[in-house]
Design a protein around this nucleic acid. Structure first.
Length: 447
RNA sequence: GUGGUUGUAGCUCAGCUGGUUAGAGCGCUGGAUUGUGGUUCCAGAGGUCGCCGGUUCAAAACCGGUCAUCCACCCCA
């Protein structure tokens, strides 16, 4: 066998898999459209300068860079090349990179097309993204994201709407999930209350790990970042809070914290949690790594299965200002299609028929019948029925085995008897029953 | 980037403390069955044991390296 392979972290998809994936995409798209979002697409490659610095240091490492065309080494940074300094070298040999997510390209899109856009602009985008991560369970180097975002409005009605979209999509897919919600301002409030506003990022990264490493682990992490014991004590106390109401006293001296609570309360006023199919919970430990979030943040976890988050998002007040457009606030969420697929597969949640598969296979006994069968086939196809003719009039056993392999519900057998009488042998492959019918009767039966 | 796991037929895997012709199930091809599939029975094809090197009389097995894979960490969908 030839030693062929595909790059690590990438996958081929069989017809069945593509059909199942499309089922997910179609379900998601349907909901997006009903909520008034419109599709856009952006290029696979962006200018590297568009991507770098938007995802934090870790994110920059995971960016796929595209080598410049032509004799790129002749123009390479001499010093960096001699020093074997890859990081320095990149700027001079690569000017493009592959999409890391859909949010940053969207921000770039909004800035570039700001004069053609009516705000608030609601768009959705379903495209693959690439990350040079080491693959593992639920993690690939190439995967699809399904993003919905709205920019150009501060209204918290959109936060509520996005939670509703999450709830509705997962209900439609038959998945039981927990939708977690928090607010970056609340996290900022914790930092303020603890007197470590300047170490906000270190603090959130530590807090984010609470469900994994426990309170003790978080405290250790905080100590490692040289956060004073008094602050750690304050943070620990706040982390025990379970409801927004209990949080208020802690934020007496923190305007950010108060604002965060107020925003979440407003979202809850819009969003009727009692009507939700899934749990929607305030989770003070939810932090999220992407550093452009400024307000509400969301994350979705599948229940009854071990899997990382299957969706996430939040509000970003300032993303477009990086590209020169100020005061355009945005909020959006993302669905991780690959992980949703893996969860649905594990829990066997896919409906039996996700594809538009073959309905009938024509089988001929001899050359003359084969030609006759082909003409029948065309009529059936014209009637809108997915159908096929076995390419040669070979042994019936072989043709029938093919019908089994394709899982065709009906087979039409045509030999000299059928050609002469015009009555075709119509066989139900599941029951094994067979009857003689005209082609029109057969079309009527299948439709 | 760090740590670990696994790599044997198309697929899933077995192969004992190293021992002579490397196995099973499924799948595939042909036949029993020249106008009827799924069930059954018979026969057959198919393997440089990931790759390179070392130890040994002898390596699929032991050792080193390398590549790939999966898993965990970091981070994330």
């Amino acid at each position: 066998m030839a030693k062929v392979s595909i790059p690590k972290g990438t996958r081929d998809f069989s017809p069945e898999e593509v059909e199942k994936r499309n089922f997910i995409f179609n379900t998601i798209r349907e909901v997006f459209v009903r909520y008034g979002y419109r599709p856009i697409e952006t290029p696979t490659m962006e200018n590297l300068s568009t991507l770098t610095g938007k995802y934090g240091e870790e994110g920059d490492k995971l960016l796929f860079k595209v080598l410049n065309n032509g004799d790129f080494l002749s123009k390479a940074d001499e010093a960096a090349l001699n020093n074997r300094d890859s990081n320095q070298l990149i700027a001079s040999i690569s000017k493009r990179g592959m999409r890391y997510d859909l949010t940053v390209p969207f921000a770039r899109y909004v800035v570039m097309h700001q004069n053609d856009i009516a705000f608030p602009f609601k768009r959705y985008q379903i495209q693959p993204v690439w990350r040079a991560d080491r693959p593992q369970k639920g993690r690939y180097q190439e995967f699809f994201q399904c993003d919905v975002d709205v920019v150009g409005s501060n209204s918290l009605v959109y936060e509520a709407e996005l939670v509703q979209i999450y709830d509705e999509v997962f209900a439609k897919l038959g998945m039981d999930v927990e939708i977690k919600i928090n607010n970056r301002k609340i996290l900022a409030g914790i930092a303020e209350a603890a007197g470590i506003a300047d170490q906000f990022m270190d603090m959130t990264i530590a807090i984010d790990k609470l469900d994994k490493v426990g309170l003790q682990g978080v405290q250790d992490e905080l100590r490692k970042k040289d956060i004073p014991e008094s602050a750690i004590a304050t943070i620990s106390k706040i982390l025990e809070v379970k409801s927004l109401g209990d949080l208020k006293p802690h934020f007496a001296n923190s305007p950010s914290g108060q604002k965060g609570i107020e925003e979440l309360e407003t979202v809850y006023e819009y969003f009727d949690a009692s009507q939700a199919a899934n749990e929607v919970n305030f989770d003070i430990t939810l932090a999220r790594g992407l550093n452009y979030y400024t307000g509400c943040i969301f994350e979705v976890k599948a229940k009854n299965v071990q899997m990382g988050s299957i969706g996430g998002g939040g509000r970003y007040d300032d993303l477009t200002s990086i590209f020169g457009l100020k005061d355009v606030s945005g909020v959006g969420v993302s669905f991780g299609a690959e992980r949703i697929y893996d969860v649905m597969e594990e829990l066997k949640l896919f409906p039996e028929q996700t594809g538009t598969s073959l309905k009938v296979l024509f089988i001929a006994f001899d050359e003359a019948s084969h030609r006759y069968a082909f003409r029948c086939l065309n009529k059936v196809r014209a009637a809108g029925i997915n159908s096929e003719l076995y390419p040669e009039p070979v042994k019936i056993q072989k043709q029938m085995k093919y019908a089994n392999a394709r899982q065709v519900p009906y087979v039409v057998l045509i030999g000299t008897n059928e050609v002469d009488s015009g009555l075709l042998s119509f066989k139900n492959m599941e029951s094994g029953e067979q009857e003689k019918l005209t082609l029109d009767q057969i079309i009527g039966k299948i439709k």
